[in-house]
C-alpha cells in the first residue's frame, strides 16, 4: 500500500514576506527583503511604529508569521522604523 505523497509547501520567498507584511500593516513599506528560502531579513518602514517599543514593533511582524517562525521560516531578522527614523 503506497502512502499518498505528502503535500509540498513551497519555500517562502522574500517577495511573499514583503507582500504579507505590506498587506497586514496598511501604511507600511518593506524596503529590504532578502532571504535564501530559510533565513530572511526584512526592513519595515511604517509610521504606525511611532511611540511603539522595539519589542512590540517586532511582535507585530512576528504575529503575521505566527506558527511559521522556526519552522517554514527558519529565521527572520527584523528591523522596524518610522519614516522619520529611516531618514
Amino acid at each position: 500500500m503506497a502512502l499518498d505523497p505528502l503535500p509540498v509547501l513551497n519555500d517562502p520567498s522574500p517577495d511573499e514576506l514583503r507582500e504579507r507584511i505590506e498587506a497586514a500593516i496598511p501604511d507600511s513599506r518593506v524596503t529590504e527583503a532578502d532571504g535564501d528560502g530559510h533565513h530572511f531579513r526584512v526592513t519595515v518602514i511604517s509610521d504606525s511604529f511611532e511611540g511603539v517599543s522595539r519589542i512590540n514593533r517586532h511582535r507585530t511582524i512576528n504575529e503575521i508569521f505566527e506558527g511559521e517562525l522556526g519552522g517554514r521560516i527558519h529565521a527572520l531578522s527584523i528591523s522596524c522604523q518610522t519614516s522619520e527614523e529611516a531618514k
Binding site: 522595539r54 519589542i55 517586532h58 512576528n62 505566527e66 517562525l69 522556526g70 531578522s77 528591523s79
Partner: peptide, 20 residues
C-alpha cells in the same frame, strides 16, 4: 510571548532578541 531564541531579560523585562 516571544517566539525565538535568544531572549535577553533585564530587571525582569524582555528587552529583545538578537536584532533588537
Amino acid at each position: 510571548n516571544w517566539p525565538t531564541i535568544p531572549q535577553l531579560f533585564v530587571k525582569g523585562e524582555l528587552v529583545g532578541g538578537c536584532d533588537i
